[in-house]
Amino acid sequence: MSNLLTRSLSALVYAILFISAILYSAETYIGLLAIFATVCIWEFSKILKSKSFIPYLLLAYVVFSSVRASISYNDFLLVITLFGLSVLLYLLISTKPIKTEAFSGKIFLQAIYLIFPFYFLMNLPFINNAYQPHIIIYIMLLIWTNDSFAFLVGKNFGKHKLFEKVSPKKTIEGFIGGLVFSIIVGVIIGQYSGIFSISSWIIIAIIVAVFGSLGDLVESKFKRQANIKDSGTIMPGHGGLLDRLDSLFFLAPFVYLYIHYIM
């Protein structure tokens, strides 16, 4: 019971802090994400056994660019990021381990897996240079819906493993359950939010459910290779901040692509 209370209080503090920063201003949103990204880099560096300061310098440039809106090569950066994440998904499906020994490989993984996705997460709620905080709130709601119903459906009806070697508890039935309920919530958001159409939110819900789940699996593979259970201990009862944000930053470039280039 005490563990449940610890998990609940930890999640509540995290939610209040994150949502407050999102709603208060664009600056507090980017600022808090910068802090979150710094912690995630630190946790991921421990997984990779890297002590380089280069990822922190790269993050500083990304944050500065987000505040000043000075990156003029979004197209190129998005292509590189999506390509890199696609490679990680291929390595997730394959039986081969993700190579993390070389110094250059560690820097590449930190840039592709964390830093560049955080850049697109920072810029995701800016539509025609106007900050739309509720976009992030609704995406977080979709992630919560997907995670919750994937767990509930998987626990009660799951029989077929999704990626057993990476995450033994995840099932195909759980994945489908999370996807279906995410689409339902997407329809509700599209109906009442006044932001984007219902069809657009259905597509965003599908992207969130699919790539959010895959992002969680990619992090699980990194942790399994490193033989650790959690990325850190900063959130009592939950593990590290990377464990909480892996879905959000992994799906961010794909949602950004849809909202800013396709929709």
Rank of each mutant, 00 (worst) to 15 (best):
Asn3Phe: 12
Thr6Arg: 13
Ala11Ile: 07
Leu12Gln: 07
Leu12Thr: 15
Ala15Arg: 06
Ile16Trp: 12
Leu17Asn: 06
Ala21Glu: 00
Ala21Pro: 00
Tyr24Met: 12
Ser25Cys: 13
Tyr29Lys: 05
Tyr29Phe: 15
Leu32Gly: 10
Ile35Phe: 15
Ala37His: 05
Thr38Gln: 09
Thr38Arg: 06
Trp42Arg: 14
Trp42Gln: 11
Ile47Trp: 07
Lys49Tyr: 01
Leu58Lys: 06
Ala60Trp: 06
Tyr61Pro: 01
Val62Ile: 15
Ser66Leu: 07
Ala69Gln: 13
Ala69Cys: 11
Ser70Thr: 06
Ser72Val: 09
Tyr73Ala: 15
Asn74Arg: 13
Leu77Ser: 08
Leu77Met: 14
Ile80Gly: 04
Gly84Thr: 09
Leu85Met: 15
Val87Gly: 01
Leu89Val: 10
Ile93Cys: 02
Pro97Leu: 07
Ile98Cys: 00
Lys99Trp: 00
Ala102Glu: 15
Ser104Met: 11
Ser104Trp: 11
Leu109Trp: 08
Gln110Ser: 09
Leu114Arg: 03
Tyr119Leu: 12
Phe120Cys: 13
Leu121Thr: 10
Leu121Lys: 03
Asn123His: 08
Phe126Arg: 07
Ile127Gly: 01
Ile127Ser: 08
Asn129Trp: 06
Tyr131Phe: 14
Gln132Phe: 10
His134Lys: 12
Leu141Thr: 14
Leu142Ala: 09
Asn146Cys: 15
Ser148Arg: 00
Phe149Arg: 00
Ala150Val: 05
Gly158Val: 07
His160Leu: 14
Lys161Asp: 07
Phe163Asn: 03
Glu164Met: 00
Glu164Trp: 02
Lys165Ala: 05
Pro168Ile: 07
Lys170His: 07
Glu173Asp: 08
Phe175His: 00
Gly177Ala: 06
Gly177Pro: 05
Val180Asn: 01
Phe181Lys: 04
Ile183Lys: 07
Ile184Phe: 14
Ile188Trp: 06
Ile189Val: 14
Ile195Thr: 13
Ile195Tyr: 13
Phe196Ala: 09
Ser197Lys: 08
Ser197Thr: 15
Ser200Ile: 11
Val208Gly: 01
Ala209Glu: 05
Val210Leu: 13
Phe211Thr: 11
Phe211Cys: 04
Ser213His: 00
Lys221Ser: 07
Lys221Met: 11
Gln225Asp: 08
Asn227Leu: 04
Ile228Ser: 05
Lys229Tyr: 02
Lys229Leu: 08
Ser231Glu: 06
Met235Phe: 14
Gly237Trp: 01
His238Arg: 13
His238Ile: 12
Gly240Thr: 01
Arg244Phe: 01
Arg244Leu: 09
Asp246Ser: 08
Phe250Asn: 00
Leu251Gln: 12
Pro253Arg: 07
Phe254His: 02
Phe254Pro: 01
Leu257Trp: 10
Leu257Phe: 15
Tyr258Asp: 06
Met263Cys: 03
